[in-house]
């Protein structure tokens, strides 16, 4: 009994010892990024930073081998084919917006547009490209939008995330995203950071919590739970609901800033989308 109590107490203590990050959250993006890497290096010294692209699976050898097996014949292959067909259909339009080298598109996003003073995401620009050319916008969240995005991601596999912050506006968008990330909200008083930074690697029931480092590398994602591909911002709405907080609209300024922040933190990690998740 005494031993059990000690274990319980020390677990409680680690839960409280690892929480100093939000207080020291930086106003310099580069420093924030370095700090996050240092934090995860200290928390999980045996895990390479590059491996964070594989999400929660890096924390469990069992789940990792199940996932690797699933990725050998992944359920998203049909969706990539569907994305290719959609791309071919409106190739002239897409190529005019993004260039005809399909391997060079995914890596440009998300980016900050100083003229509109807004973050541009791949999905947002796919639809803008369509409506500018008089085509119908795809529905957000899943279906064609995720399939075309997955097609571009698939063709960019192996390249590294490279989000640039070169202006005050871009920095502001990053900081707004960072702020959203650490701010508790909703009935449970949770923040993204509580789950995906301070408790990354721990279990909520039997779900292992992924680290935010690596969140954007493999999107859009085919989730077994959804049985289809979904975009990153669609995933955000799910997590906001789990926090019993009102989700924002996908491609709202709030979520675009959050995506910009999350993607900047992933700089240097390999693009491995689309990915498969439980």
């Amino acid at each position: 009994m005494k031993k059990l109590l000690l274990v319980a107490l020390s677990l409680g203590a680690t839960a409280t010892a690892t929480v100093s990050m939000a207080a020291t959250m930086n106003t310099d993006p580069e420093q924030s990024s370095q700090q996050l890497r240092d934090y995860f290096k200290a928390k999980y010294p045996t895990i390479n930073i590059a491996d964070y692209k594989n999400g929660a699976y890096i924390f469990s050898a069992d789940k990792m081998s199940q996932w690797e097996a699933a990725e050998e014949f992944p359920p998203y292959l049909d969706a990539i084919d569907a994305g290719e067909a959609l791309y071919e259909k409106d190739k002239a339009t897409f190529d005019k917006c993004f260039g005809s080298d399909i391997t060079k598109v995914r890596v440009k996003f998300p980016r900050f547009n100083d003229k509109t003073n807004q973050v541009e995401t791949l999905e947002g620009q796919i639809n803008k490209c369509r409506t500018d050319a008089g085509l119908k916008a795809y529905k957000w969240k899943k279906g064609p939008i995720a399939q075309v995005s997955a097609y571009y991601a698939y063709n960019a596999r192996g390249q590294k995330i490279n989000v640039k912050i070169n202006s005050e506006g871009a920095k502001k968008a990053f900081l707004a995203g960072q702020n959203f990330y650490v701010q508790p909200r909703g009935q449970f008083n949770l923040s993204c950071a509580k789950c995906h930074t301070y408790n990354a690697g721990r279990k909520a029931r039997s779900n292992i919590l992924s680290a935010n480092l690596g969140h954007t590398t493999h999107f859009p994602v085919y989730r077994a739970k959804w049985k289809h591909l979904g975009t990153l911002e669609y995933r955000y709405t799910g997590c906001n609901k789990n926090m019993r907080a009102k989700p924002f609209k996908v491609q709202s300024t709030t979520y675009k800033n959050l995506e910009f922040f999350e993607a900047y933190m992933d700089n240097g990690l390999e693009i491995n989308g689309p990915g498969y998740r439980e």
Partner: peptide, 26 residues
Amino acid sequence: CLACHAMQGGAMAGNIGPALIAMKLR
């Protein structure tokens, strides 16, 4: 509570919070 705390009699508990044991002592 099992989302985060191991508790006697509960299956598939998470480990975000400390195990809830010896509450009278704590």
